[in-house]
């Protein structure tokens, strides 16, 4: 079991896949990291030697913003939008879709579960 960047322990998968379990690393970045480390992306993560793990780890650390740090960056960007009160910031504040989607129906991901309104009695 390998620990890269703190919490992540990618298990019996190919290195290229198990690296994507790190927040901020997708398939493309995982392949790039493997290439730079000179590691065959097709071998399983458990077969990595300690040396290889530390190599991957250091490459990720120097080239990518991942995990907590990335989450913080994203929150900061959203915070900035809210702060300057531009349209996107207002949408974030209200919990509505930010990129111009329709809100007549759906948009449940942003709006959360339905809030039913009591039907008026005749």
């Amino acid at each position: 079991m390998a620990r890269i960047q703190g919490v992540d322990i990618p298990p019996n998968k190919r290195v290229e896949i198990s690296l994507t379990y790190i927040y901020g690393i997708g398939f493309k970045t995982a392949l790039d990291v493997c290439n730079e480390a000179g590691i065959d992306p097709a071998i399983k993560a458990r077969d990595l030697s300690d040396d290889e793990v530390s190599r991957l780890s250091s490459i990720i650390e120097s080239n990518c913003v991942v995990e907590g740090q990335l989450r913080r960056v994203i929150q900061q960007n959203i915070g900035r939008l809210k702060d300057i009160a531009c349209y996107r910031g207002l949408r974030h504040r209200r919990g509505l879709p930010v990129r111009g989607q329709n809100t007549r129906n759906n948009s449940r991901t942003r709006k959360g579960p339905k809030r039913l309104v009591a039907k008026k009695k005749k």
Partner: peptide
Amino acid sequence: ENMVGHKLGEFSV
């Protein structure tokens, strides 16, 4: 300073 790069219209709903 933070508003640089945005458009004026973004701030007037």
